[in-house]
């Protein structure tokens, strides 16, 4: 699949934004750390900014954005529609919760608890829906697995947690508990991603034989019937060189997991102030961006079988 920059930015930014919001609200509501009004304000604003920038970027890849408002009306069958509905539903709850918590300077009342709890739930569901948009497609075996939404949730939470550590440090709060949680989330996300990469090597599914119905002999493409590219070859024909895929995978683990874990380790050890947390944030965005690029670049749509691929 063609790795479109707008969709990569959308899933990385909104995932981190929702992750940041979820952990900020949980830390605040469950008292996992000292979260005062200032932290809530900056952390909350940053999460809303990331989410909104991501969602706007996703509208940017539409060919006919003037009809985007219609995307809320197929909730019953479409994961894309569900994502849109939950993303919009999240805003009033998330915004009111942040406002209320900020005005009461971090005190947790019953209304704050309800609003925050609902917002956290909606944020989790939205990220799950983002994963299911890809996970539900039977045409792309690399995506058609429960690991897809799992990875979206884990990477969103892990990257959001790394950002939250930086926000806590910048607002002068104790960040040790969150840094510890961040290390745990990063390790978990790295394991899930590793499982996904190993699982992907064992796939089997439609071949050029089942695609054409000639299952008892070798089938080769003689002529695709067109001299220039088509919508199908542009959209689905993308194939990155193998060594690029390999180095991107190395990049995912180094920048996405190893460097951020070391950065948070430095925070836990009390070395370097906020600098290492900042490094961890930059690194985790680079790593998750590479992960999302690979997610698309390694996905092989079955329509490629009709253009000569022997298997997907």
């Amino acid at each position: 699949m063609h790795p479109a920059l707008s969709v990569i930015f959308f899933t990385v930014a909104s995932g981190a934004g929702y992750g940041l919001f979820i952990l900020l609200a949980l830390a605040h509501l469950l008292g996992l750390g000292d979260v005062d009004g200032k932290t809530l304000l900056w952390g909350g604003l940053l999460s809303l900014l990331l989410i909104t920038a991501g969602l706007l970027s996703s509208v940017g890849h539409l060919a006919n954005p003037k009809n985007a408002w219609r995307a809320f009306f197929r909730f019953k069958t479409s994961w894309l529609s569900r994502e849109g509905v939950f993303a919009v539903l999240f805003y009033p709850f998330g915004f009111c919760y942040l406002l209320l918590a900020w005005l009461s300077d971090g005190a947790v009342g019953a209304l704050t608890l309800v609003l925050g709890g609902v917002a956290v739930l909606l944020a989790l569901i939205t990220v799950f829906c983002t994963g299911m948009i890809y996970g539900c497609l039977k045409t792309i075996r690399q995506w058609n697995t429960s690991l897809t939404p799992t990875n979206y949730l884990l990477l969103g939470l892990a990257s959001g947690c790394v950002v939250l550590v930086l926000v806590l440090l910048l607002t002068g709060q104790q960040a040790d508990a969150m840094a510890g949680l961040g290390v745990a989330l990063l390790v978990l996300a790295a394991l899930a991603k590793g499982v996904y990469y190993f699982w992907m090597r064992t796939l089997s599914g439609p071949t050029i034989n089942t695609a054409t119905g000639f299952t008892r002999a070798q089938v080769r493409l003689l002529d695709a019937g067109h001299t220039a590219g088509t919508f199908l070859t542009d959209e689905f024909g993308y194939q990155a060189p193998l060594n690029q895929l390999f180095w991107m995978k190395v990049g995912v683990f180094v920048f996405g997991f190893v460097v951020p874990v070391l950065g948070l380790g430095a925070v836990l050890a009390g070395v370097g102030g906020g600098w290492f947390a900042g490094l961890a944030v930059v690194s985790v965005f680079v790593g998750v961006g590479a992960e999302r690029w690979l997610f698309f670049a390694e996905a092989r749509h079955v329509v490629n079988l009709y253009h000569g691929a022997q298997r997907t």
Binding site: M1, H61, L62, A63, N64, P65, K66, N67, A68, R70, A71, S78, L80, I133, L137, K138, T139, I140, P206, F231, L232, E235, F236, H301, V302, V303, Y306
Partner: peptide, 13 residues
């Protein structure tokens, strides 16, 4: 709205 999602879901191009 031109999101291309349906073309992703179609195995026959």
């Amino acid at each position: 709205m031109g999101c291309n999602y349906c073309s992703w879901a179609c195995p026959y191009g």
